[in-house]
Amino acid sequence: MGSTSTGQQDGGRDRDTEGRARSARPRDGLGRPLPYGADGVDRQPEGVVRTPEQTVAEAQQLLDAGKPFHAHEVFEDAWKTGPQDERALWRGLAQLAVGLTHAARGNVTGGARLLRRGAGAVDEWAASDAGEARPYGIDLAGVAAWGRELAVEVEKGGGAVEARGRAPRLRGGT
């Protein structure tokens, strides 16, 4: 991360010594900022290079624990560090995880939009020349269907969903 600053700078905003934004505030399980000094949930380290299998396993553990924001960060690492022809896959999975994050926060519009966008990206990747139906054991059709179904549920319900109870099974099954 390259940050050497450990507090608030620039009028109360977290900045490193070069003036770049930081995210030093503690966060809850859905990635929402908490007051400084509060006990938060450990963040996922950024820029970690994992194998695709490690990415799927770690993201599933985080989803199962009700931490879709953190799962999104794991998928984002794969998107940014993985092979070019797989980036759209990981980006779509990250969008699905952040869509669940927004839905769990009660953001109906943003949650539904991101769930649909992620489902579309996963479908598009699976239909592409680079795509396949079950890369790394991921049930892409099932995950995309989950995203679209949850988007409808979120819009109809109009309130927050429980992240742990609504987490997808990346490799299918229950």
Rank of each mutant, 00 (worst) to 15 (best):
M1P: 10
T4A: 13
T4M: 14
T6M: 11
Q8A: 14
G12M: 10
R13C: 09
D16L: 10
T17V: 12
E18K: 13
E18D: 15
R20S: 11
R22M: 15
R25H: 13
D28N: 15
D28C: 08
G29H: 14
G29A: 15
L30M: 09
G31V: 01
R32C: 10
R32S: 13
A38C: 08
R43S: 13
Q44P: 03
E46V: 15
E46T: 12
E46I: 10
V49G: 06
R50D: 04
T51D: 01
E53A: 14
T55W: 01
T55E: 01
A57S: 12
A59I: 03
Q60S: 07
L63A: 03
G66H: 09
G66W: 10
V74I: 14
E76R: 07
E76Q: 10
D77A: 05
D77N: 09
A78P: 00
W79M: 09
T81E: 08
D85G: 05
E86G: 02
A88F: 00
A88R: 12
G92E: 04
G92R: 04
L93C: 04
A94R: 11
A94C: 06
A104V: 13
G106F: 07
T109S: 13
T109L: 14
R117M: 12
D123S: 14
E124I: 00
A126M: 08
A127C: 03
A127T: 06
R134Q: 09
P135Y: 06
L140A: 04
A141L: 09
G142N: 06
V143Q: 07
G147E: 05
L150F: 07
E153L: 15
V154D: 03
G157W: 05
G157I: 10
A160W: 04
E162I: 10
R164G: 10
A167L: 05
P168W: 12
P168A: 09
L170Q: 00
G172L: 03
